[in-house]
Each structure stands twice: as C-alpha cells, then as structure tokens.
Amino acid sequence: MKSKFRKKNIIVRCAADLFLPLACTFGCYVVLHGNTSPGGGFQGGVLVASAILLVFLGHGGTRVKDSFSSKLLHSSETIAEIMYVVIALLGIFTGLNFCVNFVFAGQELETSILMNDAVGYHVMAGIACLLIMMLSTLEPEDKEQDAPSEEKEVAPK
C-alpha cells in the first residue's frame, strides 16, 4: 500500500521535498526576528514543527518514525524550558531583576532575543512531539484496514 501511495504521488513528494527546507528556513527566520518584527518564538516554532507534516505527506508515517526521535524532542523541550529560565535568572545574578535585558543593554540586541529563541526551540519540540504522537495514532488503522485513510484519499486528487 505504501509503495502504491508513493508512486501515485510523485508531485506531492517533490513538493514536500521542495518546501521542507523553505518551511524550516522561514520558521527559523521568524524565530530569530521575533523581537523586531511580527511573529516570534511561538509562530516560528510551529512553522518549523510543521516540517514533520510535510515529511508525513511526502514520505509516509514510517519515514517520520525513522527520521525523528520523539525521545530526543521530548528532552529538548525540557532543555529549552530550562534555557529560558536560566537566561531569565541571569538578571538576578547580575544584581538586577528577573527577566531583565542585561547582555547588550542599550543596543538593538537584547536578552529578549535569546529568550525568544528558547521559546521557539521549546514550541518546535513540543509541537513536533504532539504531531508525532497524533500521526502515530493514524498508523495502526492503516495496517488493520486495507482501505486508505482519509488523508491519503485526499492527497491523490
């Protein structure tokens, strides 16, 4: 079934391959420019995480399982959270308040950009975890019933 699906959807596969780097790059751009432009950590993180959906559409669920480690994503989510708190705590260690901008005070660059990155990292990992979990619930249905699931029916059209 999987091979049939792939053969039929060369356009989807190519488009997914094409847009995958674009989505990632654009997401990273949104995260990095979060403090001076619309968007920010959350939106950018979701964009990057949506790359998983592209992989799923183009190459199927097994490929998603092979390419991404949900364990690693889970721990990187935690690491991002700790990163955020540590950056925020640096303010206290320098004798100022929590969450204070101290690294490049007075300049365009601020600690808020680092926090933004942490949020982006966190959201990316969190949403990716969620997506992998949700996609994995689709898998067993495919194996049990031979009929293609809804998403795959839609794709060829």
Binding site: S75, T78, E81, I82, V85, A88, I92, N97, F98
Partner: peptide, 21 residues
C-alpha cells in the same frame, strides 16, 4: 526581594528537571 519569583521559578524548574532526569 527576589524570593517570590525564585520560589515560583524553582517549582517550575523542578518540574522540568524532573521530566529530564
């Protein structure tokens, strides 16, 4: 003065570290 925020944050950080280790 920092104690209120530290008390809140140490619980949240504790939660993250718990899920890590």
């Amino acid at each position: 003065n920092n104690f209120p925020i530290l008390a809140i944050m140490i619980l949240f950080v504790g939660a993250f570290v718990t899920s890590l280790v």
